[in-house]
């Protein structure tokens, strides 16, 4: 009885909307599209991760078996150990970490202050100053290589970590991004804080910054990766091993001219990327979530 009832129901709905044959065709097309997309995205993802996976494979293989596929023999740490012994990588790591931590902290603090002023206050030359910030989105310190070198050298900061970091201490990108986020802070919250007697800096710290947390975290991680990876400016401004970050330090080992073999090349690559990669694997979920929540408006 009930079975019959549902049967008739279904046929009525079928007539009302689309014929059942057409519905089936749409369903089939949908399923086909789903399958195609799934295969496509997996192919794309594997293609994108394959070069890196291959490097991690080759870095731990004996030279004579590096190019063969024998997953059960030939594993070794020798490549890493050999390359590690060829240069003061401890020093390079120390420099890079100091640089990256100092720069992201500096950029976040200076950026919060500036974005707050641009969002909340009208002040003399407001628009001109903001236009100048926008200009920096295109003109990075490394574009003006020669003159920035002269400038930093004249400040006596050539060949120092501070000299590498100083031109990047304020990020226009971050000020721009954070201003967009700050604009979304409800005016009622700010007024409530004012009624409670909070000062101007207190409102920044207790109202704006907590709301902008996703933006700040996402930018912090992008900044860490940017400065971990930065190469051209540190190459130009440093001469001695003591001041060099990892990218400049490893550079010599990445060119094939010095007769280095393939496995050593991959081992050098692994040494350069491993700490950063580890950080991102750990922070991956939080990073992507914060990035998506931060958005760009």
């Amino acid at each position: 009885m009930t079975a019959q009832h549902t049967e008739s129901d279904r046929s009525t709905t079928g007539e009302l909307f689309v014929s059942s044959a057409r519905a089936r065709r749409i369903m089939r097309a949908e399923r086909f599209a789903n399958a195609t997309e799934l295969i496509g995205v997996w192919l794309l993802a594997l293609l994108w991760i394959a070069p890196l996976a291959y490097v991690f494979w080759a870095a731990f293989r004996r030279t004579d078996v590096a190019l063969t596929f024998q997953p059960f023999t030939g594993w070794t740490f020798d490549n890493i150990i050999t390359v590690w012994g060829m240069a003061p990588f401890g020093r390079f790591y120390y420099n890079t970490i100091l640089l990256v931590v100092g720069l992201s902290a500096g950029q976040i603090i200076l950026g919060c202050l500036a974005a707050y002023a641009f969002t909340r206050y009208r002040f003399p030359l407001h628009n001109l100053m903001f236009t100048l910030v926008l200009l920096q989105l295109m003109i990075f310190p490394e574009v003006l290589l020669g003159e920035n070198f002269r400038l930093v050298a004249s400040l006596g900061l050539a060949d120092t970590l501070r000299g590498i970091g100083l031109p990047y201490l304020a990020s226009a990108f971050f000020i721009f991004l954070l201003r967009q986020t700050f604009k979304s802070v409800p005016v009622e919250l700010v007024e409530a804080a004012e009624v409670e007697g909070a000062g101007r800096l207190e409102i920044l710290w207790k109202v704006y910054v907590p709301i902008a947390r996703p933006t700040i975290i996402a930018f912090g991680l992008v900044s860490i990766s940017f400065h971990w990876n930065n190469f051209l400016w540190p190459l130009v401004i440093t001469q001695s091993v003591e001041a060099r970050p990892i990218t400049v330090g490893i550079y010599r080992f990445l060119s094939p001219e010095i007769g280095i073999n393939f496995t050593a090349l991959t081992a050098g690559t692994v040494i350069t990327v491993l700490p950063l990669l580890a950080l991102f694997l750990v922070a991956q979920r939080a990073f992507i979530q914060n990035f998506l929540r931060a958005g760009i408006k």
Binding site: G111, A114, A117, R120, R122, L132, Q136, L144
Partner: peptide, 30 residues
């Protein structure tokens, strides 16, 4: 407020102007 706002943007603007607008001008000069 206006002085306060300027104080807030000053450190960032010194860096941004110092390492892009100023070198841009000296680049043209050079």
């Amino acid at each position: 407020n206006s002085v306060f706002a300027w104080a807030l943007i000053l450190p960032a603007m010194v860096i941004l102007l110092g390492f892009s607008v100023v070198p841009m001008i000296t680049t043209v000069w050079a």
